[in-house]
Design a protein around this nucleic acid. Structure first.
Lengths: 220, 220, 220, 220
DNA sequence: AATGAATGAGCATTCATTCAT
DNA sequence: TATGAATGAATGCTCATTCAT
């Protein structure tokens, strides 16, 4: 019998990718078996190797492509936005909407870094740093302009990103609150959190922080 | 040979638990093998079964005990603290210090919930809800007292806890910033984020939120 | 190496089944290991799982298929045979020849019922009941016709079947006695055992038996 | 703490033996674990080795003791009984009652011979031969005296013993039929099966049997 | 007489992967 | 493009057995 009309490699490749995302999201990379994946797309497990080199590279492909997409879209969202406050708002808005829309990919990229082999992990970590850097930059500029109260931009970056990313652990598109409402709520939390209020001094312990200058290690 | 001189059940049990935490933290529950664990404590893998029923219950024991410890200590930390602001500060302080001190346990409890079988997972999720409830309660009281600007206490709870918990992803005890400094930084972010500033109105979209009253589903 | 030249699924499946019968017959189901079985057919033990779901289902497949074969052939052997005496003879003849020819299968079906998990066991027990029912029916009809002296057809059924089945414990095809001779000997024992002799009364204790009517439990 | 009053080795030994019989009967020798056995008598599994050398010798002890008991009692039951018919009746009577009373032991001795290592098995097989020999002897004498129609006493022996032994597969002491009734039924089957009826010739095929004289192999 | 800690071999089963067809 | 047969290593787990205490 000839092949089914329209049954072609590209379609299968896409089906594998989607089933892979779904299964890794649901069971975790280690717990997902290639037999399951093959069954999901109606193949024998050996046939998957036409579409990827091995299980590890399936994961890497998924995570790398996701990170590229994330960065590309973030840059597009921030493109042309002027001023630290507007840029911070744009970042928060983008990050939240992206995480609500593509929660499975995001979840995988956050949870399965551990399952990536060292070189792959390094690549992904570097991409994540670039993405986080966009937020850090906005915070630094806002602080320099006297708009934000962020003595430690790196810490604030981690804090804000953790807070925003957490949304993909519980957000459901059929929930009571709309995406717009949630964006408004989080934006408010973030903006108030970092904005300089009139006449409020930094706590002493922060004022006495050692200077970050000259340190070598990437993380505080 | 039967028994190493000086071998001792309680000591072995403790060693297994610690090695288990370490290996699950490092490789993930699925990726850790009991042979690895046994090797770490100098046993044959079959001998581990004197100390737990199976791999799953090792994980559950670790997570459950951690959650019990977390809740007990949180309650102790909040005990006698009066007023929403003070209570919020106490919660943030406790949460951060605990997460900086026991980051492996915390990491496991957050990451490996997925690896728990349904009934175990239900138990842990319930415990987590109780722990989160302490924060939510403080936020609600603060809002009711007109101190906090939190139209959606549940969302704010998730947001704050995500932000704080994120610290265990990067904190190193030998880092540049002390625990005190980090606590001060995060406390500032949280407090400013939720405090009611003079004459600042809610964003329109939040003001127009549907009332949470009467909804049945647990999550927003 | 992937595939031995000329290897063939159907052939392997048959080889596994036969080796399985042989090993279970020789060592017992519990004592047979799948490594042994795999070695017998020249495979790695994991490869067996292409051919059965698990060890238990290998046993069940063997026993079920045997029972189906037994019943089908018994019905064929009895088909068209008229009259209780002729039917009893046909049953004895069939049963003996079958048990002499396929003693390994028969042995397994009798000995390893205990090793079947409950639902499988129930299925097999039900099939056995059907097979035994054919003999019981012949005995009942002969008794009703005044030809047989069987006050308790169920007991007589068990007795006769036990007697006949015992042959597979010692029969060897290269023994001194031919199948025909053995069939003649057993037929004689059975026929004389149940036939009504002239003027011979039942022993008193049997005459005084409680009526089986109305009892619920299947077995005497 | 001192030992419990009356807790002594002999009592424990007996408990182990009984639990062993029970568990082997229920699960089979291979499937029974010494942990189960130990738990049944309230010991640690290592402690069992004060009472037997190893698992195999527990089985052998059980089977050997049972066979000794069987033979001793059979000899006592036949002692002083005169004449082939009376002796045959006495054997049948004894065998049935013994098998109804001690069905677990009997079952084990029949089913687990396969699990005995070669030398142990040889011992048990020899004992069984002695026990069967008592029946064979009675049949031979009855045939020689012209009372029985048994051209092949060995075959008849196997047939009768199989038939009688089968009772322990289904007999329940709370069944509808009493032991006396069952003994009467089986005795009747056996006696009629082997007794010489007036003017009934042997079937041709049996009349033409090769003489058993001079053969070496133990089984027909 | 019994414990309890441990061994080391073995088990059924699953896995990612290979490759001739 | 896909199959299906197979590998070989690994996994979680159970077992009979040992022996210092």
């Amino acid at each position: 019998m000839a092949r089914t009309v329209g049954s072609n490699g590209a379609r299968t490749a896409k089906a594998i990718r989607e089933a892979g995302v779904h299964l890794i999201y649901k069971h975790g990379y280690e717990a997902m078996s290639l037999r399951q994946l093959a069954a999901e797309v109606g193949l024998q497990s050996g046939s998957l190797y036409k579409y990827f080199e091995n299980k590890q590279s399936l994961l890497f492909d998924i995570v790398r492509d996701h990170m590229e997409d994330l960065i590309t879209r973030a840059e597009a969202a921030m493109d042309g936005v002027e001023g630290p406050i507007a840029r911070l708002k744009a970042y928060v808005d983008f990050h939240l909407r992206y995480h609500m829309t593509r929660s499975a990919h995001v979840f995988i990229a956050n949870m399965e870094i551990r399952s990536l082999e060292a070189p792959h992990r390094a690549t992904v970590v570097e991409m994540r740093r670039r993405y986080e850097g966009m937020l850090e930059q906005a915070l630094r500029e806002g602080a320099a302009a006297g708009l934000f109260r962020v003595p430690e931009p790196k810490v604030a970056t981690y804090a804000i990103i953790s807070m925003l990313t957490g949304i993909c652990m519980w957000y459901r598109s059929d929930g009571r609150l709309s995406q717009d409402a949630l964006v408004a709520l989080y934006t408010d939390l973030v903006l108030e959190g970092v904005s300089r209020p009139e006449g409020v001094a930094m706590p002493d312990v922060v004022a006495a922080l050692p200077s970050p200058a000259g340190r070598r290690r990437a993380r505080a």
